[in-house]
Write a protein that binds this DNA or RNA. Structure first.
Lengths: 94, 94
DNA sequence: TAAATTAGTTTATAATGTAAACTACTTTAC
DNA sequence: GTAAAGTAGTTTACATTATAAACTAATTTA
């Protein structure tokens, strides 16, 4: 009947992050912040959770003297996202 | 970009309840329990939240000496569900 | 050199979700 | 008739989550 929904993705902000990452090769912290409209703090925490789950990789460096955080989806992340979307459909049928 | 997701519906169990109610005129507590696989306690709490929000109406009576709880979607609930599904699509685009 | 800005992280608290325990009755078995 | 098991829930206590506020650490601008 109803499929389980991965709790890691069933969160507005984390889902938005993954959704954005699906359509780009990689994304900067500031880009994700702007597109999602999230606060820095919240974004930082949620990025970390996605990283812990290995749904994304996070690379920290510097650019023009400022810290630069780059996020990228993993294969595991792609699979999880696709499953989530698929499972979600069982709830949306008319 | 991303639409807001009604937190009341962005919950696996409450979404499942509303999803079930969408396709039937009304549903009994036991029916919802069986279809969702939820525990009675959890179901009771989530039904109450949907009722507080006036997404459903709850009618309590007796049948064959046992308590009988019947749930039914409201217009408000239907609109909320439809908006939720619509807004959710902004997260699922490929 | 003080104030504002960038790019974040940490932490404290509020909000949520959920299982376990409980209520209140009914039915069945002895 | 009464003890045990079953029905249909509700309440409450705890654990998990989410999020905003406060903080770090540096840079830039005035």
């Amino acid at each position: 009947m109803f499929k389980e929904l991965d709790p890691l993705l069933h969160s507005q902000l984390r889902l938005a992050i993954m959704s954005l990452l699906m359509s780009v090769e990689e994304a900067e912290f500031t880009y994700l912040k702007e597109k999602t409209g999230a606060s820095s703090g919240n974004l930082s925490v949620q990025i970390d959770k996605l990283k812990q789950a290995e749904y994304i990789t996070v690379t920290k460096s510097f650019r023009d003297n400022y810290p630069l955080t780059i996020c990228k989806k993993t294969k595991r992340g792609i699979k999880a996202f696709e499953s989530y979307v698929d499972n979600l459909k069982s709830y949306l049928k008319p």
